[in-house]
Amino acid sequence: MYQIFYNLTGRAFQLSVNPQFFYGSTIHKRAISYLRYGLIQGEGFIAITGPVGTGKSMLVQMLISELENDVIATQIGTTQLESSDMLRYIAASYHLTYEGLTKAALLKNLESFLINQTQRGRRVLLIVDEAQDLPSDSLEELRLLSNFQINGKALLQCFLLGQNELRQILALKSMEHLRQRIIAAYHLSPLGREETQGYIEHRLKHVGWSKDPVITHDAYQLIYEHTQGIPRRINIFCERLLLHAYTEELHTINEDAVKSVIKETSLESFTNESTFSN
């Protein structure tokens, strides 16, 4: 639809995570640097936190796309997994036997797998998404997994990704032992005004945008104010904005066009603040 009208090669603001659309804002460059630093260290935990929609999943996909063949990575998304269920989930993610096994057998299988990979010159990386949902005993289980070593070398490295609540959890006194294993932590914040514009233009240019439609300064300002600089909100809103511009056959998106879309979406029962928080 609007792609053809504006001679674009695809959808610039799709919600699915695609590393090709990665925008190197100041904040996200720093975060990816921390992740790369963590990989070089080859041990301990790296914690990346931030509000919903600030780009944690994009950072992970960028990291995975850069990994060499000697790194075996798996990503798990947690839904309040208890420690025993989490161990089964991790084992399944690495294609290990897990059904009907006791916790001791699960741990033994995981340790044998980690030792085998290390002896073959491979490093094993576990990426835990939505880590704020893990019960404390599951976080403790992750810490214990990080104890696996051979010749003084850690066998498993773990990245914890989570929302703001994860910072609060890690600050608890009961998490002191886990905190001691965190070699780097970074908190993502929303984009500023200029980088919001940069983000929008970066994604548009990636699909062949040649300033049709033109987006005015006032329009960018209002988009920033409405989305608060959160990438996922920007994607959702700009997708609707381009659709609106197409239906109105606009070649300039100004403040009035943005206001029209804000009004349209505010009248839809399924498009409100809760839409952006899931």
Rank of each mutant, 00 (worst) to 15 (best):
H187I: 10
G53L: 03
S57T: 15
F22I: 02
T9L: 00
L204K: 09
L142V: 00
G162T: 12
T26E: 14
I48E: 01
A73D: 03
E255I: 12
E249Q: 15
K173A: 14
T79I: 13
I200G: 04
Q163P: 10
A184M: 11
K205E: 14
L156V: 12
E43G: 04
G10A: 10
G152Q: 01
V261I: 11
N69Q: 01
C238E: 04
A91S: 11
K108H: 10
I76H: 04
G192F: 09
S189L: 08
F148G: 01
E176Y: 08
F45M: 03
I76V: 11
P231N: 03
Q180D: 14
P231S: 06
C158M: 15
V128C: 06
D212W: 01
G42W: 01
V214M: 11
R181D: 11
I32P: 03
S25Q: 07
L8M: 14
R181T: 13
V207T: 10
S112F: 12
N116R: 12
K153G: 12
C238W: 05
T54K: 03
N109P: 08
T102M: 03
L114I: 04
F113D: 05
E264M: 11
E130I: 07
L156E: 11
R123A: 00
I32N: 00
Y23L: 10
L250C: 06
Q14D: 15
V214K: 08
K173W: 04
G100T: 13
R233K: 13
Y220V: 12
Y98E: 14
S189R: 11
L160T: 02
P190T: 08
R120H: 09
S112Q: 15
L222W: 02
N235Q: 10
G10V: 03
I32L: 09
Y34L: 06
E248S: 13
P135V: 07
Y246H: 13
L170V: 02
H95E: 15
C158V: 15
A154P: 08
L178W: 12
G44L: 08
Y2R: 10
G10Q: 05
T265I: 15
E165K: 07
F159G: 01
S57H: 03
V207Y: 07
Y98H: 15
T216S: 13
K173T: 15
Y2W: 15
R167V: 12
G53Y: 05
Q41V: 08
V60D: 02
N272H: 07
A92Q: 10
S25P: 09
R120A: 06
I253E: 07
S138N: 04
A91M: 09
Q80T: 13
L250K: 08
D212G: 04
M175W: 05
F159H: 09
R232A: 13
L125D: 02
L126Y: 08
N254C: 06
R203H: 03
